[in-house]
Nucleic acid binder design. Structure first.
Lengths: 113, 113
DNA sequence: GTAATCTATTATTATATATTCAAATAATCA
DNA sequence: TGATTATTTGAATATATAATAATAGATTAC
């Protein structure tokens, strides 16, 4: 159970693979389209897709000399959304801390606490 | 953005760390309690907590010679739940495929399609 | 007060795994 | 056959994991 999860999260633990999933979240795409969207070269994209295929996160269907990729489970979209929310919360926290720091700086005689 | 997410997922890409987070999802715990729950030895747990701290996923508060750990963002709980759902969907898919395979086996004269 | 005990963390190192890049290969189309 | 699309391979490099010993801080016992 935890093992599966760890492997799953490992598949997500890479910027390009996240980007690919976000592109596929908008709808099925050929490798060429994915390449264009993520701005990486062919073998890099192909390799990352191979990892995502191996982990059953995406699937590819041949269409002539093209391959169309889709997300295997739409819940990936939700997972990415939750992660984005956590990121935003983290950002808010960071900004809040900076604001506090700024306030302290403006009050030289702050209590020693 | 993707970088942060990748680092975040990397922190989740380990069985023991997932287990720790699941334990903390039930409420704050001392290291000793976490150890008992996950059944790993002290330095292993401590090292994984260090990684989770470094990624701002958990925070530890000293209480005498004990340290109490909590999740920094309760949305981690939701993320783990979504991941669990994806796992379950995957399991269902796998079982469905096995069922199909079984059916085919029982019908020797299956269509060639 | 000191030593022992408890709780937790850090450091170190061998080993495993992942990433990156470029070249080679394979399948399909015109 | 050459062009297009995509995948695989190989190797250098980077990063993660796991186990053990050492260290640090707080509490308790004598």
């Amino acid at each position: 159970m935890q093992r599966f999860k760890a492997e799953f999260f490992k598949a997500l633990a890479h910027p390009l693979r996240i980007r690919i999933l976000e592109v596929l979240a908008e709808g099925e795409k050929s490798v060429n389209e994915i390449q264009t969207h993520v701005g990486s070269e062919g073998s890099a994209v192909s390799q990352q897709l191979q990892i995502l295929r191996a982990k059953n996160i995406v699937s590819g269907t041949k269409d002539g000399n093209k391959v169309i990729y889709t997300l295997k489970d739409p819940m990936i979209i939700e997972l990415l959304a939750v992660a984005r929310q956590i990121f935003n919360n983290h950002l808010v926290d960071t900004i809040t801390i900076l604001d506090r720091f700024k306030d302290d700086e403006e009050v030289p005689a702050a209590p020693k606490n």
